[in-house]
């Protein structure tokens, strides 16, 4: 079953300076077990799109089906919200409790899950993000990466079908970023969790199965990381970029080194360079 099935989605924001078209006919299907990265410049419509995944926003035109449920149906609001967990940019804005385990329990408590089951879910979720040693710690004393992992655990405790990270690494230091990325990669690859990652970091997008590029409210490019990041000129015209290793490979190819065109990571680049001899 498709976790997300979005057809001809439109969204218009109405402000006192008139209307802004944020989404202008987006079609997107995300299947169970996929890991999709969404990239696009500020104001391209990425976050607006993400807010349609769990009915924070409702379609101005078109429709969004979450595991077959139409977000426009008010009666389905809670089932939809439970299936799609969101992690946002600011770790401090999404932590509600003063103890890690209570924070993780907040979601299932609100769903009316029985206490014994909540305890089991909190244990399991903290283990999934490798934070079980911190269950009685105060969240505000954790590092940024640890806070975001607690936020992910809080989402996992609601047993979602899809986890959405909306620039969840933007405020983190390099180690915090890799902690969050490794957590998501492990959840996706080992536990089959479906994930959508919205990011400005091309080096994170490379790790997804599929990269979707949004510009002016429309999907302009979609494919494997290798396919998308081979479109260097188009991405640059859209105000985006390619991963650092890909850029260095292009520079080296321009200097006459016979490198293949689809290099995306530092490790691939080094392997290909060593193969040249």
């Amino acid at each position: 079953m498709d976790i997300l099935d979005i057809a001809d989605l439109h969204h218009i924001y109405r402000g006192h300076e008139g209307e802004t078209i944020a989404l202008a006919g987006v079609d997107l299907v995300v299947s169970e077990g996929e890991f999709v990265a969404v990239i696009g410049r500020n104001g391209s419509g990425k976050s607006t799109l993400a807010k349609h995944f769990n009915a924070i926003l409702l379609p101005g035109g078109g429709r969004v089906l979450v595991a077959g449920l139409d977000t426009r149906e008010e009666a389905l609001l809670w089932p939809v919200r439970q299936m799609v967990g969101m992690v946002f940019q600011h770790p401090d804005n999404q932590i509600v409790a003063t103890v890690v385990e209570e924070d993780v329990a907040f979601g299932p408590e609100n769903l009316g899950v029985p206490t014994a089951e909540i305890i089991a879910r909190v244990d399991a979720s903290l283990r999934q993000v490798n934070m079980e040693d911190y269950r009685t710690h105060a969240p505000h004393l954790l590092s940024g990466g640890q806070k975001q992992r607690v936020a992910i655990a809080g989402v996992l405790a609601m047993r979602p079908r899809l986890i959405v990270l909306d620039e969840a690494t933007a405020m983190l230091d390099p180690i915090g970023r890799s902690e969050v990325m490794n957590t998501i990669l492990r959840l996706n690859r080992e536990e089959g969790m479906t994930a959508v990652l919205i990011t400005h970091h091309m080096d994170e997008a490379v790790k997804a199965n599929r990269v979707v590029v949004i510009d002016q409210g429309q999907i302009v490019l979609s494919g494997t990381p290798a396919e998308v990041f081979s479109q260097y000129e188009l991405l640059e015209a859209l105000g985006l970029d390619v991963p650092v290793a890909a850029k260095l490979s292009i520079l080296l190819a321009e200097s006459g080194l016979p490198l293949p065109a689809n290099i995306l990571t530092a490790e691939q680049l080094v392997d290909e360079l060593c193969r040249l001899n």
Partner: peptide, 23 residues
């Protein structure tokens, strides 16, 4: 730098990997 939660620029990282391969 890694033990301090930091890192190096990717250009430096590539050179480091190449160095271990004898470049």
């Amino acid at each position: 730098l890694k033990t301090y939660g930091l890192g190096v620029p990717q250009a430096t990282e590539v050179l480091g990997l190449l160095k271990t391969k004898g470049w």
